[in-house]
Structure formats: structure tokens, C-alpha cells
Write a protein that binds this DNA or RNA. Structure first.
Length: 590
RNA sequence: GGUCCCGUAGCUCAGCUGGAUAGAGCGGCAGCCUUCUAAGCUGUAGGUCAUUGGUUCGAAUCCAAUCGGGAUCACCA
């Protein structure tokens, strides 16, 4: 916010001095480097050409004017080379502190009347969730919360891939090998149960292919003609034709998976306003295809298939309807986009989808644009990179997939062990302890996955696991608990008239606190929770340095004590609200 | 082959809408608990920002080429 204010004031000052109206793009305002005196720096180089002067002179004139005209903002300035360093008036920072130290809505923008949909998670019903899904879920949930804080009316949705050959594979394997076993009879979580049969299918398939190739068939042919694969393909046809036994088996196995997902979702904190199922949407989109033909955006080939030519946009020709009139992936997505718009009428729509689908998402956006659909411009792809293991990619066939439930369990177990070793929670009862372990374990996991720029692929090392020190969720949680501990002993609320001279650590903290709303806005604009995650770490780190350097409760004077209590209070508020936007709870004690 | 993304300390990552001597965390080394929670703090070592060229007052940041890694270009989803 100060950054914006400084730009505004500089524009006013320059207009007054030179009679030229500049925009905030004509010059830069940055935080001053620590080795120089000052808090914010105006970079003068870009201005000297238009203003026909030299940096030294410009700096003096501008600095003089700013300090003279806005004494409540600036107390002094200095010029080093082409940099005008401004020192912010502590009174300004104190005013911000006083206005917000008890403000639970700090940093949040008022409702802006815009509705925005965030679609994320998109699980398949043939296997349990894994580490990659966790990144997706945490990103989706977090960006939804960040958008809420920016004043959007957010609708969280999920599209479940509940049909297709992969589900049939689990079904075939269950029919062949289960002897009527169920999740109940085996006391397995439903999604894991079904996932186990998916694995069984692949094992059986592999064996059959080996037998066929041993008999002299070439591999490609064997993979097509393996009996179990033929069965699965037949089952998909039966499913599409609505054969009652198949539909009923499909419903039964999916219900097992959903009850498993429910447990996981509840644990990691997912709440969708609306869940779409592909079995209900896979036939959609044909009307839109007709619209595309009418508008000559699409064209029909002799065999009856429908295409769009995206070569002018640097892409390829893309099929949108098969020659037999059935939908493909993109057709469904076009149809689903229309349905979502019909149902919710949102202004924007964010798809949290892995970067392996960048091309697909680009095609979807282009098609919607060319059809001039009203929601076309509002489609955004929050693209994220894969989570890889030090050994490379996760592969279900090689058993190197990190299971979501296992990982969460493990994180909580580590949190428990760690907490018990520290022995600080003797006054907690059993329920509180369980809550605390979950909070810390999940906090570590969520923070770990959210602190990295979404678009980059990231490496997860299960051996070294996730640390509880340094740039981690527990570090921030701990800082919060520390502050709360102080505030239980002494709370802010006395009068604060003369705060004395601000110590460096105090001022640095205030300057950082002051940028919170800007951070939230940036995170939303860039669809990037990592911006917020890194800010919260920096804030916690700064607070800890301040905490180590000064006493709060036993401050030198009553005024200092009050100031520091308010400072601690506002930092706690930000840590709490910021972490919540990352989907992470923050404890009162730990 | 076309398109897109990535390459910064031993490891994991910030910084990238161009600004001053490139920052954190982990790990290493050396310190700090009779005072508000040591899941913390302080100090220290560690870099040819993949390479080369260009743009300019100034490049980790922008442009081009090259080298490395990845994704994608299905009448699969």
C-alpha cells in the first residue's frame, strides 16, 4: 500500500514541479536495500530523460518537495547515485498499527460483486488420491480463499472422472478375483480397496501379454488382444449401453471410492459447492459443436467428423466430434463450461489443472473465444507442475506413488513424536493433542506444497521427509503460538500516545505488516499462493528476531510495552488469517 | 520435428512488470535458555544466476542462439 501511495505522491510532486503528468509505470518504487538509509526508494534514472535533468538535481527537488508537502509520510531523504531513498514517518506506521491491530478483516477487500469459479481436485474413481492430487487440492482450496479475501464471491467445484476404461479395469479385476469381497469385509478404505483391483488388473494384463508374446505374438498385438483387456473394452460398451448389471456394479464400486474420498477430503479440508460427474457430462457439448458449425468456426470432414483449425494460432487442427457423432475430451469440456455458466453465471472461471494439460486448456480457451461465448475471456488456467520423487516421476505401475492418506498419516505421526519429545503440552487433554498433531502435520505438508511457485515442478524427498524447522508450516504456527502465549499474559489496549523512537526491528516489522494487503492482492492476481506463503515466513522470521532482541511484557516503558503488544497482536492476526488462506490452521499453544 | 515450461549456493527454493554489493531455509562450522515458548535467535563459510551474443546509463530479470532437463502435439481421458 505504501508503495502505491508513494507513487501517487511522487506523481503529484513531479506534476507540481515540472508540470508533467506521469503514470506509475514511468518509474519504480522499491523497498530500500538494507545497507542504505531509508525505507523506500524511488529509482530516478528512468525519469531524467523526460524531465531533462540529472539524477542528483531531480532527487533533491523531488525529495525536498515530498518531505515538505507530505510530512506525515516522509521525514527525510537521501540520494545515492540515482536512487532517492525516503525515510517513512514512524507516525504513519503507528497509525496503521493502531487502526488494525484488533482488526480480524485486516488485508481483506470488500466484496467486488464478481463471481468466480474455482474447479480443482478432479479425482479418478479407480484409485486413491496421491501426492500430486494433494498439490492440486491445496492449490485450489488456497486460491479460492485468497480470491475470497480479495472480494470475490467464490464457487468451488470439482469434476470427478467416474467413467471410462480405467474404471472398467477395476471392475473386471474385482469380478475375476474378489469372490465378493468388499471394503467392509476386508476393513479397507473404499478407494484403496478399488485401487487394489486396478493394480490386480494391470498385473493380470501383464501376465497375459507375456503369455501371448511367448506364443509368438508381437507385443503391440498382444496388448490389444489380451483377454482381460477385451473384457474391459466390452464392459465399457456395456456401460454405455446401460446394461443393468454393469451399471449396478459401477455404482457399487464408485460408492466405495466416494466413501473413501470423503474421509480424505474431510481430513485435508475440501468443501465443494458443486461436484460434477463425468458420467453426467460426457455427452455434453454437441449443441455447442452445432453452434460452431453454424458460425463456421468448426468444419465437417467428408467422413462426418467435426474439426477446428487452430493453425493460425500456432496450434494444430483439433477434432471436436468423432465421425460417429460421439464426444471427445474437448467436447465434454466445452459442454461442461457451458453448463457451469448456465448454472452459476460466473464472471471468471479458474481451472486448477496440471501443466501436462497446458495444450488442452489453451485449445479450450481458444475455442470458447472463437465461438464468442460470454465466459470465454474469464477462463484462466492455474497450471501447476508435477511433484517428483528424487528417483524421478511417480509411477503407479512401479509402486513409487506416494499415497495421500499414507503421507498424511505419516506427517501427523511425525508431528506427534516431535511434539512429545519437546514436552511442552503437558496441560493438553487427549482431544486437544490429537487436534494439535493434525494441525502441525497437515500444516507442514500443506506449507511444503504451497511455498513453491505452482508452475514449477517440485521434488519431494520422502527420506528426508518434511522438516519442522526453518521455512515450514510449523515454524509459522510456532511463532503464532508464541505470540498468543504472550497475549494471554498481557493484552494490548492501554493508551498509546508517545511510543518513543522505533527500534529497527520494530520498524521493519511494521513496514512488512503494512504490505499485507498488497501481498494478498498479488497472490490473487498471479493465482499464486506461494507469494503469500513466503511472505508469512518472512513475517514470522522478522517477528522472531524482534522477539529475541527485545522484551515485550517487560519493555523499558509502558508505552513501549503497549506498542510491542499491539505489534505482536497484529502479527498474530496476519499469521492466522494468512495461514487460513493457505488452508492451514494455527494453534494457540504448541 | 512444432509448441510450451524449467536451469540461481552441496540440497530445496525466493528474487524475474530491468536498478545499488544476488537472498532464505536445510545441511556444515561457532555461539545463545536462572527473564515473554530454543519447533527459536545470532554469527560464519558457501555463487561464472547453464553458455554465448545482443538491447542500455544499468541484465539473474528483456531478446536471440546454443547446451541440458521436462511436458505436449490421440477419433484416450
Amino acid at each position: 500500500m505504501l508503495n502505491t501511495i508513494i507513487r501517487e505522491k511522487a506523481i503529484i510532486a513531479l506534476n507540481k514541479i515540472y508540470g508533467i503528468t506521469l503514470s506509475d509505470k514511468d518509474f519504480q518504487v522499491n523497498p530500500t536495500k538494507p545497507e542504505f538509509e531509508g525505507d523506500y526508494t524511488i529509482v530516478l534514472f528512468s525519469l531524467i530523460k523526460t524531465l531533462k535533468t540529472n539524477p542528483e538535481h531531480l532527487g533533491n527537488v523531488l525529495g525536498e518537495e515530498l518531505v515538505k508537502e507530505f510530512p506525515d509520510l516522509f521525514v527525510s531523504y537521501n540520494i545515492i547515485k540515482g536512487f532517492l531513498n525516503l525515510t517513512i514517518n514512524p507516525a504513519y506506521l503507528i497509525r496503521v498499527l493502531n487502526a488494525h491491530y484488533q482488526d480480524p478483516c485486516l488485508g481483506k477487500a470488500p466484496m467486488n460483486g464478481q463471481k468466480i469459479m474455482v474447479e480443482y481436485s478432479s479425482p479418478n474413481t479407480n484409485k486413491p488420491l496421491h501426492l500430486g492430487h494433494l498439490r492440486n487440492n491445496f492449490l485450489g482450496r488456497s486460491i479460492a480463499e485468497i480470491l475470497k479475501a480479495n472480494g470475490y464471491d467464490v464457487v468451488k467445484t470439482c469434476i470427478v472422472n467416474d467413467r471410462g476404461i480405467h474404471i472398467c479395469k477395476s471392475m473386471i479385476a474385482w469380478l475375476r478375483y474378489a469372490n465378493g469381497a468388499t471394503p467392509e469385509s476386508t476393513t479397507m478404505k473404499g478407494d484403496h480397496f478399488v485401487g487394489a483391483y486396478y493394480v490386480k488388473f494391470n498385473d493380470a494384463f501383464k501376465t497375459e501379454v507375456e503369455q501371448l508374446t511367448a506364443g509368438g505374438m508381437d507385443k503391440a498385438k498382444a496388448e490389444k488382444e489380451a483377454p482381460i483387456m477385451l473384457e474391459a473394452q466390452q464392459m465399457l460398451l456395456d456401460w454405455e449401453n446401460g446394461v443393468p448389471e454393469i451399471i449396478s456394479l459401477w455404482k457399487k464400486m464408485n460408492s466405495w471410492v466416494y466413501s473413501g474420498f470423503d474421509v480424505t477430503y474431510k481430513r485435508i479440508g475440501s468443501d465443494f459447492v458443486k461436484t460434477y460427474y463425468e458420467s453426467e457430462t460426457y455427452l455434453l457439448g454437441k449443441e455447442t459443436v452445432q453452434l460452431g458449425l453454424d458460425k463456421n468456426v468448426f468444419y465437417k470432414k467428408d467422413d462426418g467428423s467435426v474439426w477446428i483449425d487452430l493453425t493460425p494460432d500456432g496450434l494444430d487442427e483439433k477434432l471436436v466430434l468423432r465421425k460417429d457423432g460421439t464426444s471427445v475430451y474437448i467436447t465434454q469440456d466445452i459442454g461442461l463450461a457451458q453448463r457451469k455458466y448456465d448454472e452459476f453465471g460466473m464472471d471468471q472461471s479458474i481451472y486448477v489443472v496440471g501443466d501436462e494439460q497446458n495444450y488442452h486448456m489453451k485449445v479450450l480457451q481458444l475455442i470458447c473465444q472463437k465461438l464468442a461465448l460470454p465466459y470465454a475471456a474469464g477462463i484462466h488456467h492455474l497450471s501447476y507442475g508435477m511433484v517428483e520423487l528424487p528417483t524421478g516421476k511417480m509411477k503407479s505401475r512401479e509402486g513409487t506413488v506416494v499415497d495421500a492418506d499414507d503421507l498424511v498419516d505419516e506427517m501427523i505421526a511425525i508431528a506427534k513424536e516431535h511434539t512429545q519429545n519437546l514436552g511442552k503440552v503437558k496441560d493438553f487433554d487427549e482431544t486437544e493433542l490429537v487436534q494439535l498433531y493434525e494441525m502441525i502435520g497437515l500444516g507442514a505438508l500443506k506449507y511444503f506444497l504451497l511455498r513453491v511457485d505452482p508452475k514449477k515442478k517440485m521434488i519431494f524427498n520422502p527420506e528426508e521427509s518434511i522438516d519442522f524447522h526453518g521455512s515450514t508450516g510449523p515454524f509459522i504456527q510456532y511463532t503464532h503460538a508464541r505470540i498468543k502465549s504472550i497475549l494471554r499474559k498481557a493484552s494490548a489496549g492501554q493508551s498509546l500516545s508517545d511510543y518513543g523512537i522505533l527500534e529497527k526491528q520494530e520498524k521493519d516489522l511494521l513496514l512488512l505488516v503494512e504490505t499485507y494487503d498488497q501481498v494478498i492482492k498479488q497472490a490473487a492476481d498471479a493465482l499464486d499462493p506461494s507469494t503469500l506463503a513466503n511472505y508469512l515466513f518472512q513475517l514470522a522470521q522478522n517477528f522472531n528476531s524482534f522477539y529475541a532482541a527485545f522484551s515485550i511484557v517487560n519493555a523499558e516503558t509502558i508505552e513501549k510495552r503497549e506498542l510491542r503488544l499491539r505489534l505482536a497482536s497484529i502479527v498474530a492476526t496476519i499469521l492466522d488469517s494468512g495461514m487460513k488462506m493457505l488452508g492451514i490452521q494455527v494453534p494457540e499453544k504448541m
